[in-house]
């Protein structure tokens, strides 16, 4: 059985290319024709000349179609192409990898949602560290919440490689920028897309993951109320994220908040139009919702996926990205003297 996939993006391009030139051709040729037409030319002359014109148009149309229209690709070819271009980036966490069908897929937007303190930023840091350290690829980390902690990144990296040189190498692959409003966020993404990424020894093609923590922080101040533009900015952001993921073959990981409904159930924030943006969505929750239980245990549930059955969940420990021994030493170093 053959499946026909039509990429909506490609289709859109074709239509614009198809219509505009034709329109122009019609316009110009008819214009030209009129000027050449004499006053005494008969009606049939006109008709025939228009007919030739319309025949020419059809011909042009065909050429254009052949040049620009998308044509059906069979699934096998698509699969081959996918295999050659898609990479799966392990998150470094077994449970998450299991949920994500072995990791983050390049060319896709993955979303992490959860209530405050559910570990979204921790997962982001973990993914960044793993991609930089294990896969030796560059990571772009766009921080809009001020939640990035390089010392925590170092802790995670320390648990993976032992030598200081390797650790620093890994950290050097993580490029961080702070943004505080939607316009600077869009600007960063657009510079990224148009090759404004800072030069790195192995070239920008080694960029494999873009992490945005979080989209909520920049979007919430501009949506709601009577701000018509907020929604369009949100969709622009969505478009940029999708385009970056596809054009550069990188995995995009974003975080978002949850809205608690009156019955205690949670749903992803930012409303319906955003909910279509990510391909895969994972919900993070405290295993025990009591404030006092502080064991670092979290449950991740798959809410949306095109590869795995939804609603499967896995439990994992937030601290599992690192050894606790390291944490303790680091803490003792950092206590100021006068506190004793």
């Amino acid at each position: 059985m053959n499946y026909v996939f039509v990429s909506s993006h490609l289709f859109y391009c074709t239509i614009t290319f198809h219509f505009f030139p034709t329109y122009k051709i019609v316009y110009f040729s008819s214009h030209k024709h009129n000027s050449h037409m004499k006053k005494d030319s008969s009606f049939t002359d006109c008709i025939s000349s228009f007919r030739t014109l319309s025949l020419t148009l059809v011909a042009i149309n065909r050429v254009l179609l052949a040049q620009y229209a998308s044509f059906p690709i069979n699934g096998a070819d698509l699969y081959d192409e996918l295999l050659s271009s898609t990479a799966i980036l392990s998150t470094g966490n077994e449970s998450l990898d299991k949920l994500l069908d072995s990791g983050l897929y390049t060319g896709e937007v993955t979303e992490l949602i959860g209530s405050p303190g559910s570990g979204k930023t921790q997962v982001c840091l973990g993914v960044a560290a793993n991609v930089a350290c294990e896969l030796k690829r560059n990571v772009v980390y766009i921080d809009s919440t001020g939640g990035l902690s390089a010392s925590r990144l170092l802790e995670i990296v320390k648990s993976k490689v032992s030598t200081a040189e390797q650790q620093l190498d890994a950290l050097r692959r993580i490029y961080v920028t702070e943004v505080f409003d939607i316009f600077s966020m869009l600007k960063v993404l657009q510079t990224l897309r148009t090759g404004g990424f800072p030069e790195s020894p192995s070239g920008s093609s080694s960029l494999k993951a873009v992490i945005v923590d979080s989209v909520r922080a920049v979007l919430l101040p501009v949506i709601g109320g009577n701000q018509i533009e907020g929604l369009s900015l949100m969709m622009q952001l969505a478009g940029e994220l999708r385009m970056i993921s596809r054009d550069f073959c990188v995995a995009v990981l974003v975080t978002n908040h949850v809205i608690r409904e009156s019955n205690g159930a949670v749903k992803p924030g930012l409303g319906r139009s955003w909910s279509h943006v990510p391909r895969t969505r994972i919900l993070l929750q405290h295993v025990n919702s009591e404030m006092t239980t502080q064991n670092g245990l979290r449950r991740a549930t798959l809410l949306k996926s095109s590869r795995q059955p939804c609603q499967i969940s896995e439990e994992f420990c937030l601290g599992s990205w690192n050894h606790h021994k390291v944490v303790k030493e680091a803490k003792e170093d950092s206590i100021p003297e006068e506190a004793h």
Partner: peptide, 22 residues
Amino acid sequence: TRWMKATEILEQEKSCRSISTF
């Protein structure tokens, strides 16, 4: 756009002092 490597941020964090609560 200012891009910083995580190592630079680490340096920054290390040079930052914290306010003690006593």
